[in-house]
Nucleic acid binder design. Structure first.
Lengths: 160, 160
DNA sequence: AACAAACGTTAGCGCTACTAACGAAGTTGG
DNA sequence: CCAACTTCGTTAGTAGCGCTAACGTTTGTT
C-alpha cells in the first residue's frame, strides 16, 4: 500500500489531475471546445469578423437570398440573435437587408459582392485556424475525427 | 448550371445547412459540446449533483485531502468558483472544510464516507451518460475518439 | 523589518445558448 | 368572411461558464 502509493505519486512535486476525470469524453470535449472557440474567435477578430458572420455569409452564398428566419434555420443562429448579426453585416456592407414585397413580415437578405469577397477571405482564415487546431493529427486522423464528431452530432440532433 | 442546381437542391422542401459550415471541426465541436453538456448536466442534476462536484470529489478521493487552492489546480476549477462548490458539498455533508492548523490561510478539505458513497454513485451515473453520449460509436471508436481528443487537448494546453 | 507571494473570498464582466413576449402580417378552417 | 392560429422581426431578459480584479490575512524571503 505504502509501496504502491510511492510508485503512484513519486513526490516529484504536485499531484496530477486524476485520470478518471481527465479521460471523460464530456470533459475533454468541453475543455477542447473552450480552446477551439478561443482560437477561432481571436483569429476571426483579427479579420474583423465573428463566427456568426461566417455562418450567415456561407449560408447566403450556398442557398441564395432568404428571410432572416430561413437564415436562422440554415445557420443555427437563433432568430433573436440574428438581428444584431445582420446589423453588423449590413454596417460593413457585406449584406443587404430589404423588405420582401410579397410578404411584408419578411426581410430578404442578400449577400453583396463585397460580402462574397469577405467570405472568400474568411474561408482562408478558417482553413488556417483549423490547421492550427488540428495540428497534432495526420490528414487521415483529421478526417476520422470529423467523421466521428459528425456521427455523434447527427445522433444527438435527431435523437433529442 | 440550372441543371446542376436542380441536382444539388432537389426542391424537396427546405435547403440544408451548407457543408462548408457543417463540416468545420470547430463548429462540430461546439455544437456537440453544447449537447454533451446538457446531457451531463441534466443527468447529474437528477442525482442532485453538478459536474464540479464530481471533479472535486474525484480529486479528493484520488489525491487525498488538500487545500482549496490545490483542489482548484487538480480539478481545473478557478479558486474563486471553488468557494460555492465547496459550500454546496459541505451543505450535503460530502466533504469537510477545516482550517489548517499549520497554515492559517488554508482550509483542508476532506472527503467524507458519505462523499465516497456519493462519488461511487456519480461514477456510475457518468458511465451511463457517456454510454448515451457515445452511443453511435463502437468501443474501438470510442477509444479512438478519446485518444484524438486527448492529443488535441494536450497540444493546446502545452502550446498556448 | 520590509517585501513578495499564496490563501480564501467577494464582486463583476463578457460571451453563449436559449426563452418570452410583442405587434404586425400572413394562412387556414368553419 | 371572419376568427383562430402561425410566422415574422425585434426587444428584453435569463442562466451558466470561464475568467479577472481586488480585498484582507497569513506565510515565506531577503
Amino acid at each position: 500500500m505504502t509501496r504502491a502509493e510511492a510508485v503512484d505519486r513519486p513526490d516529484d512535486g504536485a499531484p496530477k489531475t486524476p485520470d478518471r476525470l481527465r479521460r471523460r469524453a464530456s470533459r475533454l470535449l468541453s475543455q477542447l471546445t473552450t480552446r477551439s472557440d478561443r482560437l477561432i474567435n481571436e483569429g476571426l477578430a483579427r479579420a474583423d469578423a465573428r463566427k456568426w458572420h461566417y455562418a450567415v455569409l456561407a449560408s447566403l452564398q450556398e442557398c441564395g437570398p432568404g428571410s432572416q428566419a430561413t437564415l436562422s434555420r440554415l445557420s443555427g443562429i437563433y432568430r433573436s440573435d440574428m438581428v444584431s448579426v445582420l446589423n453588423e453585416l449590413t454596417e460593413r456592407h457585406l449584406v443587404e437587408r430589404a423588405p420582401d414585397p410579397d410578404d411584408q413580415r419578411r426581410n430578404i437578405i442578400t449577400i453583396s459582392p463585397r460580402g462574397r469577397r469577405h467570405l472568400r477571405r474568411l474561408d482562408k482564415v478558417l482553413d488556417d485556424l483549423h490547421d492550427e487546431l488540428l495540428a497534432p493529427l495526420t490528414p487521415a486522423e483529421r478526417d476520422q475525427f470529423v467523421q466521428l464528431l459528425t456521427r455523434l452530432l447527427d445522433h444527438h440532433t435527431r435523437t433529442p
